[in-house]
Design a protein around this nucleic acid. Structure first.
Lengths: 111, 111
DNA sequence: TATTTACGTAACCATACGGTTACATATATG
DNA sequence: CATATATGTAACCGTATGGTTACGTAAATA
């Protein structure tokens, strides 16, 4: 269907997809549940979900006939890392603290 | 030429434009200087510059026949603010510190 | 003044995007 | 088994995107 450049930056470029991200950050939903929140056809939602999935922002687990969509927030770190190189421009105080934090052990290590 | 949705998210969706942002974060350049760094025609660069300008990421000052392009990093804060609502998902330690920082006076106040 | 330089702009092109309707398929449920 | 439900997929459509070439124009320079 649609293909080629499928990265996080392109995924969050669309306002509807940003809305979906926000929606799914509250709680995981199946596809129809998502579609109910949007003023567009279900196939259109399906396409957006596919795009979000293809770039790793969404994880889908099939539960019977339902497709359970849950947000993979870790993927947004890519955007955050990209912003990191500019953040010092507008927030020197945070920048200084990030450097400090980089030398600290992670209090919430992931397995 | 091109119109409609012109926001920061759409602007940074294109990898070439992200490259231009990085390039201009080092130092301001005029248009031909930018074009020299890219494997595309000058009008193509001109279009990208126009898009970046239209969404406020670039400021252009005419210096004679040259167009001096300088990055407006403040516009990237929009993306940063959007990310803020998700950052706690992957970085609790930074989140906690941001809250702390919000209560601190800005050591680098802008006039 | 003539010419080079640094751009903008218009017209065009192939393809991507975001949406639709219509239909197919797999799973629950009566 | 028949049917309703949850979803995928295909075909289509108008417009946006990202690029090109060709040409126009204002400012610097010879």
């Amino acid at each position: 269907m649609q293909a080629i450049r499928r990265d996080v930056f392109q995924a969050i470029a669309d306002p509807s997809r940003r809305d979906m991200i926000r929606l799914l950050s509250r709680k995981p939903m199946h596809l129809n549940e998502i579609a109910a929140h949007f003023d567009m056809s279900r196939p259109a939602v399906s396409k957006h979900v596919r795009i979000l999935t293809e770039c790793g922002l969404l994880q889908i687990s099939n539960q019977g006939r339902e497709r359970h969509c849950s947000l993979n927030t870790a993927k947004l770190r890519e955007v955050d890392r990209w912003l990191n190189q500019y953040r010092h421009f507008w927030n020197r105080k945070l920048d200084a603290l990030e450097k400090h934090l980089d030398n600290m052990p992670d209090p919430f290590p992931e397995p």
